[in-house]
Design a protein around this nucleic acid. Structure first.
Lengths: 228, 228
DNA sequence: TGTGGCTGCTTGGTATACCAAGAACCACAA
DNA sequence: TTGTGGTTCTTGGTATACCAAGCAGCCACA
């Protein structure tokens, strides 16, 4: 009987213009490195609506959503401005990230399977290879993937959602962090210790190691990254 | 000279219609106990626009923002629905709250002044008085005020902002938690221990106590509160 | 009696016209 | 030269008209 069941595929939901405009705008802002000196900071509703080929209404709704996420600021009769996060705000975001990920690690020691936890080692290995290549962008990609995996294993969708928004902002400054061989080595050691604690289901230790690891990143950014 | 200075009062900033509509809608939804069986769940744009006395455009923008915050769900050509959080989502929110507040407690041991920390004792006292009165609503108000104060003392605006959104949702279910004398007593003991650890600048202990306290609430809700 | 399609209503999505506040510019007077 | 007043342009805010997709009810026809 089971073999005769129909495989139902959801009807293509064809997102609304608002949703598509939102994605397009977000992508455009993401690709723009807003911390470059010459980056364009002001947007214009009518101009954007022409360039996207949609009317102002759905565009405005997309912009309003971006504003509520903190990516742009809309000022009446002045214009729409891409927001540059201050250094203090970036540090706060890393702090919250530390809080969320350490909680996710705690949950992961109780919820994740053995296979899922040991699967994290693959990300460490990738990360090592990247570190050898000294490509900071890749480093951060592999790094973030490692951390996102831990967050996912926590099994708490809300943590994942919040962390994703944070990563989006933090990623924008990664090109400004200078790759240091020392930090890369330290990270690999940290990550290995984290996975070991997770595999041992050592809740308190896993949580602490994750928190300390990310708070160290916070301190590093505070000392060595120049944003404002 | 100083006595002759003009006292400039900011021009009444007359928020945009969108902002005011947003506040009004949010207040309306808040006052509605959406977990009551007979609570109205469907909204209608045109009806609301008439009742608020604004056109659909600002109303829609307000609704879109409420949707991005998860208070309502907008379905094309079907209607706008007030979202009931599932029990699982409520539990997730309390988990994130635990993560954020424990981090705030950690920060508070380093950032807050002695006076600020000992000022927390007032909230415990108030809270005790309320507990005696066995008024669960007041209990939760005092309770939440205690926790919000800790969060504020962490000095991290982002944590405060995220926590505020969480409290908004969690508050909606407080009327469904049954006041138990045992839990109230336990809470007072917990709070006292937390303040003591904060005053002693015992970072790790304060963080741990806050986390455990809130995670216990989580377990309590999981076991004893019926939502779905 | 049941099925299929027609029709009209409801309702969110989109386009567009108009409004008002501010900024920039320019002319004119002191 | 400087400053003041006004005109114009820019730009987001608001109102409104229209569109199209669900959905329900009704009716004709088999």
């Amino acid at each position: 009987m089971a073999g005769l069941q129909l495989k139902i595929v959801p009807i293509t939901d064809s997102l609304s213009l608002k949703a598509r405009t939102y994605e397009a705008l977000k992508a455009a802002i993401t690709n723009l490195n807003i911390y470059d000196p010459g980056a364009e900071l002001k947007l214009d509703e009518r101009d954007l609506s022409e360039r996207f080929g949609v009317s102002r209404t759905p565009l405005r709704e997309a912009l309003a959503q971006l504003e509520s996420e903190g990516l742009v600021r809309i000022v009446a009769r002045r214009g729409i401005f891409i927001v540059r996060k201050t250094k203090s705000e970036i540090l706060d975001m890393i702090t919250v990230w530390a809080a969320l990920e350490s909680m996710a690690a705690r949950l992961a020691t109780k919820e994740a399977t053995d296979d899922e936890l040991s699967g994290l080692r693959e990300h460490i290995d990738l990360f090592s290879a990247d570190a050898v290549a000294q490509n900071m962008g890749e480093y951060s990609d592999a790094n973030i993937r490692f951390h996102q995996t831990i967050i996912g294993l926590g099994g708490c969708p809300l943590i994942s959602k919040l962390a994703e928004e944070l990563f989006f902002h933090v990623r924008a400054i990664r090109n400004r962090t200078i790759g240091e061989q020392d930090r890369a080595r330290r990270s690999i050691a940290d990550h290995t210790a984290i996975v070991t604690a997770l595999e041992a289901r050592d809740t308190e230790r896993a949580e602490r190691l994750v928190r300390e690891h990310t708070l160290r990143l916070r301190d590093h950014v505070e000392k060595f990254v120049d944003i404002d």
